[in-house]
Design a protein around this nucleic acid. Structure first.
Length: 304
DNA sequence: CGTCCTACCTGGAGGC
DNA sequence: TGCCTCCAGGTAGGAC
């Protein structure tokens, strides 16, 4: 399941293997992979150069050069980008054009240099690719230069590794919520990049139960939680980043990413690494939450 | 508006 | 062996 660290590994791979290259063709093999862009993707991409690879939270995008497009047009001020969300099972593969087609290949992008394809493979089809205009982010961050983001990303909050992420503002907004802390962590309009796995891991490190009401969290605890989230995600990134040096952009959360370092996620009935108490699994939002019953006791005023 | 819930989708695992 | 059910979960969109 790609969350921030996995998506960042992919971003680095794309920056290395596809930025600076010009797209020759794009073929859509499954309409769901491009949402409403169905027939247009090929036309939108043909002849355009990929300038770089950017990311906010779990979204990543490739800003496109204006080749073939009237420069300085009224709408093209900030340009466009090929936006990608990997969903649950999405992979972006950089792979030789003559390699056999993957079973769940959804979009195939070929390049003018005849080099490796960029292939979007996605078994569960929750991910998608889309060409979108770049625009200013929705809640205008004060001060400094504002980095344009694709339109569908405008309402997404900065992730905790961005310079524009404001810890104090996050704490204030968090306390204004009337919900449980894990719901808030998964709310991409409050903080982006955190998914079910790293939410559980960060909460365990900060010794917080997932149902703890946000409005009663002391600033100190919020600071601790943010530090835990940053630590667990950067550790995961360091592990994922090391295996990345082939002509292959790996996003598959299943195979060998960070598994050894997980403290609670998927460890039902196994001993807590801090106190030895068996890890519990609880139903939460139609999925699972893992926690230590002793280190993370359920609060009396728990939120659903 | 804020908060919560469900649908979307596929294939592997486990029960019988 | 095959059929069934459960499970994984990010996000859009709708209910309240």
């Amino acid at each position: 399941m790609p969350e921030l660290p996995e998506v960042e590994v992919v971003r680095r791979g794309l920056e290395r293997w596809v930025s600076g290259r010009t797209i020759a063709s794009a073929e859509v093999l499954h309409p769901r992979a491009v949402r409403r862009n169905a027939g247009e993707l090929a036309d939108q991409l043909k002849g355009r150069e990929i300038r770089s690879a950017e990311r906010r939270g779990k979204y990543l995008w490739l800003p496109l050069g204006d080749e073939g497009v009237e420069p300085g047009g009224p709408e093209g001020e900030a340009g466009e980008a090929l936006l990608a969300h990997l969903g649950m099972s999405g992979q972006l593969l950089v792979i030789e054009p003559d390699a056999p087609l993957e079973k769940h290949l959804r979009v195939r992008i070929g390049f003018a240099d005849g080099g490796p394809d960029l292939r979007f493979v996605d078994q569960r089809t929750f991910g998608h690719l889309l060409v979108a205009p770049l625009t200013a982010p929705e809640p205008p961050s004060r001060g400094g230069r504002v980095r344009p983001v694709p339109e569908p990303v405008a309402h997404i909050a900065p992730d905790p590794f961005e310079d524009v992420f404001d810890d104090a503002e996050f704490a204030a907004r968090l306390r204004r919520r009337h919900t449980g802390i894990k719901r808030a962590l998964l709310d991409q309009s409050l903080i982006s990049g955190v998914g079910n796995i790293y939410a559980d891991e960060a909460l365990w490190r900060a010794r917080l139960h997932w149902a703890r009401p946000t409005e009663s969290l002391p600033t100190k605890k919020i600071t601790e939680l943010l530090a835990a989230a940053r630590a667990v995600m950067s550790e995961a990134l360091n592990e994922g980043g090391t295996s990345f040096d082939s002509l292959y952009v790996n996003v598959n959360g299943e195979s060998g990413y960070f598994d050894r370092s997980l403290a609670v996620y998927g460890r039902r009935d196994e001993p807590c690494r801090r106190c030895g108490t068996p890890i519990r699994r609880e139903a939460f939002m139609n999925r699972s939450s893992y926690s230590c019953p002793r280190c993370q006791p359920r609060p009396r005023d728990a939120r659903p």
